[in-house]
Amino acid sequence: MKKKINIALILVVLTVWGFVASKALSQYFFLDKKTTNNQQFDSRQSINKINKDTFALGNITRDPFLNKESRTYAVATPSKNAYFKKTTIKKEVKPIVVKQKEIINWPQITYHGYINSKDRNGELLILVNVDKKLHKLKLNQQSDGITLKKVYKDSIELDFNREKKIFRIQ
């Protein structure tokens, strides 16, 4: 059954492509013989000239976008002796107060890796050396003012006095 359908589809595709090819090639190979008029050109015949259509544009009194009647204003040309007066506008400039960012001295921190235990449901213990003291931190646990915020494959994010830093394995 499938063979018959495939053969029928192939035949349909071939006929469509054959029709397209015949239409494309007919303009090159199968030229129709056209009858030619053997009339001589008469130079006395006049050629119809097309005159330009000119018209004057008037003032438009209605705005097509706002659908309102527009008004025309007469613009007075300034005289040669009229000068513009220099006006100065004085504004009070308030001084910008820049908040001094508090310099936070981070302790010396090195990240040594993590311990994954199966009996604690996959909870990670992170090994961090803070001022030469080894600490085992869990997620969101605080030790010596340092909080472990995020754990990545090769780094951790620590928070110290609301300032975050990322430390990589050393």
Rank of each mutant, 00 (worst) to 15 (best):
N140K: 13
W106T: 05
Y83T: 13
G113D: 03
D42V: 13
D63C: 08
G18E: 04
G58W: 09
S79R: 05
F30D: 02
Q39M: 10
L137V: 01
D42C: 01
T147H: 03
I47R: 06
F65C: 07
I115R: 02
N6K: 15
W17V: 08
I5M: 09
K80N: 15
Q27H: 00
G113A: 00
N59M: 09
F41V: 06
V97D: 10
I7M: 10
Q142A: 08
I89G: 03
S79H: 13
K99L: 10
K90R: 12
R71F: 06
K49Y: 10
N48F: 11
V130S: 02
F55E: 11
K80T: 15
T87Q: 12
F84C: 05
N81H: 05
T36A: 09
F167M: 04
N37T: 12
Q142C: 01
M1W: 04
F65P: 00
E69F: 09
K86F: 07
N161C: 11
K23A: 06
N37L: 14
L66E: 12
D53R: 03
T87V: 06
N6F: 14
D154E: 07
K101E: 13
I126P: 03
L158A: 00
T15K: 12
Q100V: 15
I146N: 00
D53Y: 14
T88F: 05
D154L: 07
K34M: 10
L134T: 14
N59H: 11
T88Q: 01
I166Y: 08
T15Q: 15
K2N: 15
L139I: 01
I47W: 00
K150R: 12
K138N: 12
K3M: 13
E157L: 01
K90I: 12
L14D: 06
K153T: 11
Y111R: 00
L31Q: 04
V128P: 01
A74L: 11
W106D: 03
T36S: 14
I89S: 14
S143N: 01
R168G: 12
A24I: 15
K49N: 08
I47S: 01
Q142T: 03
V93D: 03
D53G: 08
R62F: 13
D154I: 07
K49L: 07
K153Q: 15
F30Y: 11
W17P: 07
N81C: 03
Y114A: 08
R120S: 11
K49M: 05
K52C: 12
G113M: 02
F167V: 04
N116D: 04
L127I: 06
T88G: 05
D63T: 06
L25Y: 06
T72V: 14
I50W: 10
K80M: 07
A76C: 01
E163L: 05
K85W: 02
I50S: 10
H112E: 15
S79G: 13
L66G: 02
L148C: 05
I166E: 06
I104C: 07
H135R: 01
A74D: 15
Q142N: 02
Q170W: 07
K101G: 11
V16G: 14
N129Y: 00
Q170G: 12
L139K: 02
K149Y: 03
K94I: 12
Y28Q: 04
D32G: 08
K133M: 08
T77G: 02
V20S: 09
F29I: 01
K3T: 13
V75W: 13
I104R: 11
Y111T: 00
Y152G: 04
Q39N: 10
N38Q: 10
T54F: 11
L134A: 09
D53Q: 15
I126V: 09
V12L: 11
K85V: 03
Y114V: 04
